[in-house]
Amino acid sequence: MANTTKEQPLLQVKHLTKEFPVESGVFGSRFAKHVSAVDDVSFNIYPRKTFGLVGESGCGKSTTGRCIMRLLRPTKGEVIFDGQDVAQLKKKELKAVRRNMQYIFQDPYASLNPRMTIGEIISEPMVIHNEGGSRAERIESVKKLLDVVGLNPEHINRYPHEFSGGQRQRIGIARAFALSPKLIICDEPVSALDVSIQAQVLNLLDGLQEAFGTAYLFIAHDLSVVQHISDEVAVMYLGNLMEYSDWRSLYAEPYHPYTQALLSAVPVPNPDIQKTRERIILAGDPPSPINPPKGCRFHTRCPIATEECKKERPPMKEVEAGHFCACWHAKPFPIEGSSVEL
């Protein structure tokens, strides 16, 4: 594994699979198709580290996060957190697990109850788990939390609609940290924010991790953001993990053609580099997950796909120490013959 210390992983995801039934109307569920949103995904998250999960819309990255939180029940596979399989827990046991696992949502407008004050919102985890002492003590800790996330503690009795998107996201973060959980799943926490605000929130998340020793599962579509915050990064495409390594190795020497295409598609804010660097522009759109391609799911858009790729799904194998890649033709960038093409 990329993590060279012999530390036990905080979270182990093993062969996680999630299928959604597609309602097919007349014939009912017996003939229903399935969307395979997440298919056989495995990874580990270590304490105090950030695991970045990156991919395009519809690749199943959020579904993965929701399955880990058990907001969705996985179809197959294990999610082992603190030695327990979250996927199999009963409601009561789940509550105990959820004390140590929190979620930060993408939409800062939909994730805060508009009928509750900031104080009520942030103290809700304490109330639910009956922690944080008396009412006065809870108010006290909420004020401190507000201070820690850079908001004015005096605003404890205000409502979410009085705050801007960035401030609301800070409130969501304060709520996630209320019980100092061991793991926080950040589901696109900055993608709804303006660039300058995005940087504020990223710094905040970074600082809080250092201060509290929390682990993050950081889900995002923006490769630069994921790179900035992550220790390890995994790339997802159409429900499969494609590549998985520590951030340096993944960004410096991507092996999977999809990772390479993704990286080269990110526009660099520097004209000289942007105009001259080697780029792979993928043709077409991702196929529908209702009927995913056989073999490697990426083969329909892959510039170097061969017959082999259409037949069999490539296994995840270690291409370098701690660097895993699921491709039959894994080679470091740039892959020859993958010229710029529309």
């Binding site: 009928r115 908001l151 009795n157 205000r158 009085e162 504020q200 905040l204 970074d206």
Partner: peptide
């Protein structure tokens, strides 16, 4: 300072903070 304090209230309403309810 990673907090990058962000204290401005967007919708400034003149009210007494302690007595506000929905």
């Amino acid at each position: 300072d990673f907090r990058g304090s962000d204290n401005a209230v967007v919708a400034e309403v003149d009210h007494d903070d302690s007595t506000r309810t929905l």
